[in-house]
């Protein structure tokens, strides 16, 4: 049997909102250690890697490893039926055809059950090589979302250049261009407002706006985002999910033709 319970469905609601633009379906790998998802978008340009540790759940039981193929659109619809304060329980039997989502209101007076058919999926796992990144930038997630949104008006791609001085985002298009520079914060009153740059070597990479704008749907999950970059390798854009895990997005760069 598989059963995982969260006291508040808000986290799972936010996770679904953070992946639904990129994925139509995904396999949820459930084991003793927790729930993992690794899935690429249809174009194989981006990859979502989600990790929810079993110890982060209020209750977690997984008698045997399960691979459950889920339709993300349906799952999103189901999660939207839960109030943020509802308790959510995921339940499946061994060799399941279905997964059950159970929402219980705080006062325990409303109990909702949604059963979703699982799908068989061809899995394509990619081995992500261990990489030491030339630049690792931590910055407020809302600021990153704002920059991606603002610069998307000017072009299809954003060039991110990171140096000791700071991080610069540039977009150029037919109607003009724009750039935004962020300096490392000298003194941040609050940790979550800080811009921190850990640089070994300067990096300059270009990425498609449309994927970045999908990644920033994870902004409600965490006040800070971590961007890891090296020359000519995919960007890693990471959001912590409370004490339970993280979501990482990988994005293949655009390179000179």
């Amino acid at each position: 049997m598989f059963e995982a319970r969260l006291a508040q469905s808000a986290i799972l609601k936010k996770v679904l909102e953070a992946v639904k633009d990129l994925l139509t379906e995904a396999t949820f790998e459930c084991s003793d250690s927790g729930i993992q998802v690794q899935a690429m978008d249809n174009a194989h340009v981006s990859l979502v890697s989600l990790n929810l540790r079993s110890d982060g759940f209020d209750k977690y039981r997984c008698d045997r490893n399960l691979s459950m193929g889920m339709n993300i659109g349906t799952m999103t619809k189901i999660l939207r039926c839960a109030s943020s304060e509802d308790t959510v329980t995921l339940r499946a039997w061994d060799n399941p055809d279905n997964i059950i989502f159970i929402f219980e209101s705080q006062n325990k007076e409303k109990l909702s059950e949604y059963e979703m058919k699982l799908i068989n999926m061809d899995q394509e796992h990619l081995g992500i090589p261990e990489t030491v990144y030339s630049c690792v930038v931590k910055m407020p997630s809302q600021e990153f979302a704002r920059i991606c949104k603002d610069l998307s008006q000017f072009g299809e791609a954003i060039t991110i250049a990171c140096s000791k001085e700071g991080i610069k985002f540039t977009a150029a298009g037919d109607y003009g261009n724009a750039n935004i520079k962020l300096a490392q914060t000298a003194e941040a009153d609050k940790e979550e407002e800080a811009v921190i740059i850990d640089m070994q070597e300067p990096v300059k990479l270009t990425f498609a706006c449309r994927y970045l704008n999908s990644f920033v749907k994870a902004t409600p999950l965490c006040a800070q985002v971590k961007l890891s970059m090296s020359g000519d390798v995919p960007l890693v854009c990471e959001y912590q999910i409370g004490d339970i895990g993280h979501i990482r997005y990988y994005l293949a760069p655009k390179i000179d033709d």
């Binding site: 194989h44 981006s46 990859l47 990619l126 081995g127 992500i128 655009k254 390179i255 033709d257």
Partner: peptide
């Protein structure tokens, strides 16, 4: 012009 790469170019199937 820049060309969009895919992840398969960087990551190997496992």
């Amino acid at each position: 012009a820049k060309k969009q790469t895919t992840l398969k170019y960087f990551f190997k199937k496992s």
